[in-house]
Structure formats: C-alpha cells, structure tokens
C-alpha cells in the first residue's frame, strides 16, 4: 500500500557528465520517494543537481546507475519511444524558459499535448479553454508566446502541463524569470491546481520565497540529499540561517 502511494521512487541515482576529459558528478547517489498529491520543492545552490534530478525523473535524461520508478514504471528498462509515451501520458513539464512553441497561439500550445494524445478536437478545445480560464488567461487564447509577458507564458506552460491530468508535474525553476509578485501568483495558482486537481507537483528552486510554498522541502547539495523536511509551520535549514 505504501509503495502504491509513491509516484516517484529513486534509489541511489547517480549521474555524471563528461566534459572533454573532465568528469562532472552531478548526482552522487540520491534516494528519495515522493507521494502522490505532494507539493514538493527541490532546493539547493546552483549546480547542486536539481535540474538533473528533474530531468531524470521526467525521463528526459537517464541515470548512470540506480533505479528510478515513476508511476510504477522503471525508467531504466524503457526505450526512447516508451519514455516519450510516458512523458506524453504521465508527466507534465514546466521549464525555466522556452516552454511554448513560438508559432502556436496560447490555446494551440495547450491543445498540442492533447493533439499528440489523440483527443478529439472539440474536447481538446473545450479543455484547453477551461484550463486557460483557470490560470486567468481567458482573454488571451489567441496570443502567440511573443505577445505574452513572461508570467503569462509561464501560466500557459503550467496550464499545458496539467491539462491532460498527468500523474506528476515537474517544474524546473518556474519562477526564475519572474518578479517576486508574478512568481507568487504563479505559485498560488500551482498550489490551487495541486489542491483542486490533486496533481503532484515537484519543482526546483533556490528562492526562499518559493520554498515557503512547498509542503515538503528536499535540500540537495553536491548531488546528494542533504536534508528532507515536511512542513509543519515553517522550514528551518542550517544553510539558510
């Protein structure tokens, strides 16, 4: 039962990047599990391995060793095509930047994933509009990404990430390019989505304000889990004090 409740299960995940002759060890054996419906922040200084971790959980990148199980699928056993399918059906992504396809309107961007999933046009449109309304972009269906502000673009990205009800939404520094007020708005919205749609959210950040929104905070340092706290009141991390 307890296993079933975990959407993500990582066991001793290691990953190194080779740069010329130099080996950069990004992850040094991360073990963690994330429950369904969680709203988790991966925090840590720059270069600690947050992006790498999210990419591996999302099947965009593969671990050198260790096990990664997402929604019951062991990623290390899957082909590229199966991974693509997993991303399509089970995972929603929000990247730090460049989230939207520039030639498509906001509505089309949100519809795009459903198009790949083979959802009929009418239903696609209806659901895309509903989710854009949810994120407060009811007037901007037909705008191209270039005609939207950074915050609006990120909201479209969140809308796209959750529109097909994935089991998990991975967001890599979703607020990094936003001012604190807009960032707060986006986090508010994600939190609502988490509560209303019961979607699991895992996001990375090194912004203290963002961490305050999380219900669980995993601190990563030098490719290792340095601390892992569930919020009861507030977090207290030695490194930030």
């Amino acid at each position: 039962m307890g296993f079933n409740m975990n959407i993500v299960e990582c066991i001793d995940v290691k990953k190194a990047y080779r740069q010329d002759t130099l080996e950069v060890r990004a992850l040094n054996g991360i073990t963690l599990s994330i429950q369904k419906g969680a709203f988790v922040a991966l925090a840590g200084p720059s270069g600690s391995g947050k992006t790498t971790m999210l990419n591996i959980i999302g099947g965009l990148d593969t671990a050198d060793s260790g096990r990664v199980i997402v929604d019951g699928n062991a990623l290390e056993d899957m082909t590229q095509s199966e991974l693509a399918n997993l991303r399509l059906r089970n995972v929603g992504f929000v990247f730090q930047a460049y989230n939207l396809i520039p030639v498509l309107s906001a509505l089309e961007n949100v519809e795009f994933v459903m198009l790949l999933q083979g959802i009929p046009p009418d239903e696609r449109r209806e659901r895309a509009m509903a989710i854009l309304d949810d994120v407060g972009l009811e007037d901007m269906y037909n705008r191209r990404p270039a005609e939207l502000s950074g915050g609006q673009q990120q909201r479209v990205a969140v809308a796209r990430a959750i529109v097909s009800s994935p089991s998990i939404v991975l967001a890599d520094e979703p607020t990094a390019n936003l001012d604190s007020k807009t960032g707060k708005g986006l986090l508010e919205m994600m939190k609502q989505m988490n509560e209303r749609r019961k979607a699991t959210f895992v996001f990375s950040t090194h912004d203290k304000m963002v961490m305050d929104y999380a219900r669980r905070l995993i601190l990563i340092r030098d490719g290792l889990v340095a601390d892992d706290q569930v919020r009861e009141g507030g977090f207290r991390f030695a490194i930030f004090d």
């Binding site: 693509a84 399918n85 399509l88 992504f93 460049y98 790949l116």
Partner: peptide, 14 residues
C-alpha cells in the same frame, strides 16, 4: 533545435 527539444520533451516521438 529548441523547438524540437520541447516537442520531444512533451512526448513527441522521434
């Protein structure tokens, strides 16, 4: 290239 990367990340098959 970034667009293709995004498309792939969103689950588009090669």
């Amino acid at each position: 290239i970034r667009e293709f990367g995004l498309l792939k990340a969103l689950g588009m098959r090669p």
